[in-house]
Design a protein around this nucleic acid. Structure first.
Lengths: 331, 331
DNA sequence: TCATCTTTGACTAACGTACATCATTTTTGC
DNA sequence: GCAAAAATGATGTACGTTAGTCAAAGATGA
């Protein structure tokens, strides 16, 4: 159709050099008109293409992160069948230097793409920029790194998550006005700030009768969370709702379940783990806001593969939604 | 490793005849030990494998079904790249004979797998059995056909959906006791029966103070729904919650929005469409219970491909969850 | 023990693409 | 108008698998 040989088509397709601009255009147009789509499977077969991806997660006992890791390891076999090699590295949580060092140590000769649960710090931004400069694709996972050179963020919109929590708690307590307690890990973590922001936005705008008591900082530690929340509940019987936007669900559960059923606040927390699931089933928590780890991992893999091939990520199709679980729609 | 030639390995791998039992075992064991996994991409390339799938949906104006169809058409291009040809057929809704006839007309020489939104009837069961007898893979989509020979059901657990609705409405109205109105399409449709069942289960067990007013049958028609719900609301000011478990959301929305804001009931409906979305945003609906059509289609395609190759479907991984949307976590 | 049947091996072409090499044609610059 | 450079074509091999043909080896039974 373009009046050229297969060789030239190949040159255009893989944009190799040595093709006149004009023929390049002729060939491209012919491909357009014919609706030609390269068979990626055959191409990868021929290329012996192997996608080498590395996931960098925080270490520690965070149940959500460990679940993510488990899920990732379960995906490895399946990924191998699609010529994708997955490696997992862990670094101490909230330690920007350690994370940056880990990223710096990644060799472009060994790795095509990196998915990282980001700690929000300049050192990390620089490390991400370096990865990209070395030709490595980078996506952030669960926790984003805004205004960095990461090519995509795989995770939920945390403002939306906070809004959803307020929407639920506001409705749960609509006919029982009082105060809402917010339990956060630390206001130094971006996700938590965003969730709180969303929560307050909606509560103020839609449920003006409900007020917000001071934020309880529990440092994502179940014991601290338990002690501080228990104290707050004891001191202020006007608390009708609790929103915990970080970790430490076991502490929340213990602090609430000591109260008599009728005087318990409605409780909304984050991340479905075996602990929060139990609390849901026991009726201690009313709702859990969740992000689907399995999907996050699949999306991260697909995104990195596409980016490594110079493609792009379809943001809408690969969106991670804010999920709501009650005891009755648990998987 | 098994001491045989490539030819024999091939014979074992694709279980062709003419291999002694003993060598067959030797080869299989060697494959096990080596952890050999056949490269499906290369195999399909060589075989010129084309998966020909047919989706059979109800025709008519049901917004959810039309959304499903749109979504399906959008997937076609992507599927083509993965050597999957998708065709869509529509038949009049709730017409078991028409559906059975359509299924009977499917030629095993033309189609490898069928996904069908089932109408629950014997004629359809027989048609499904025939398809399977002709070697065609069959999955049901959205609406199941229990005790038929379909190999998998892609859709939500409707009892769970009903339970979730009760869990939400019960909590929304916990401090404002009264009656719950159920609006159904028809109690002749299985999904609706299951949803109602789940709803009543949970409401009785967990929220014994809330009572259920008689079920309003709206025949999935927005005008009938509007008229009957409006009448019920006018006659009984004690209705504090409305659960609509079928179609006709526009009717629900109109019947509710004429009331003064303070006296409006909490409303939970099914399926996120542009109408229910608008009602959510306007604050007329409190929650929408949804099933992710995009995912349902992807799962159906994957399932049919796997089944057509004689594989199986991983029920847990391919599960469709009951999703909850508030105005604040809309995609 | 021989004819026959069964099992196994060797080889080939093909799927759609990548990529290298070398030959040939066309263009460019002087 | 000619040499050099650039562009294009022809051809072969490879990727991991399927699927066929034909020949050789092995087993079986009378």
């Amino acid at each position: 159709m373009a009046g050229v040989s297969l060789s030239t088509v190949d040159r255009v397709l893989n944009d190799r050099e040595g093709v006149r601009k004009s023929t390049q255009i002729r060939v491209s147009e012919a491909m357009q008109r014919l609706g030609y789509e390269r068979n990626l499977a055959a191409a990868n077969l021929s290329r012996r293409r192997l996608y080498r991806l590395r996931f960098v997660l925080p270490s520690g006992s965070n149940a959500f992160m460990r679940g993510l890791e488990t899920c990732l390891r379960e995906r490895m076999a399946g990924a191998a069948r699609e010529s994708t090699l997955i490696e997992v590295a862990t670094v101490p949580p909230f330690d920007a230097q350690a994370l940056a060092a880990e990223l710096r140590g990644i060799d472009a000769g060994q790795v095509d793409g990196v998915a990282v649960v980001a700690t929000d710090a300049t050192a990390v931004r620089v490390a991400v920029r370096d990865l990209r400069a070395r030709g490595i694709a980078v996506v952030t996972l669960v926790s984003d790194l805004p205004s960095s050179e990461r090519q995509h963020f795989v995770g939920i919109d945390n403002v939306q998550a906070g809004r959803t929590a307020a929407s639920l708690l506001g409705r749960f307590c609509r006919w029982r006005r009082g105060k809402m307690a917010i339990v956060a890990g630390s206001m130094l973590v971006r996700d938590h700030v965003e969730r709180r922001l969303g929560f307050e936005q909606v509560l103020r705008a839609e449920f003006p009768d409900q007020s917000i008591s001071a934020v309880i900082e529990g440092l994502d530690d179940q014991d601290i969370v338990e002690e501080r929340l228990a104290r707050a509940l004891a001191e202020d019987p006007g608390i009708v709702g609790v929103y915990s936007l970080g970790a430490g669900n076991r502490g929340i559960s213990r602090a609430v379940s000591v109260l008599a059923e009728e005087s318990r606040p409605s409780v909304v927390v984050h991340e479905l783990t075996r602990f929060s699931r139990d609390a849901l089933i026991d009726g201690v928590f009313d709702a859990v806001i969740h992000q689907d780890e399995t999907r996050e991992i699949d999306v991260a893999i697909r995104a990195l593969r596409a980016l490594a091939d110079g493609g792009f990520v379809d943001g809408a199709a690969e969106r991670i939604g804010v999920e709501v679980f009650l005891r009755d729609n648990l998987p």
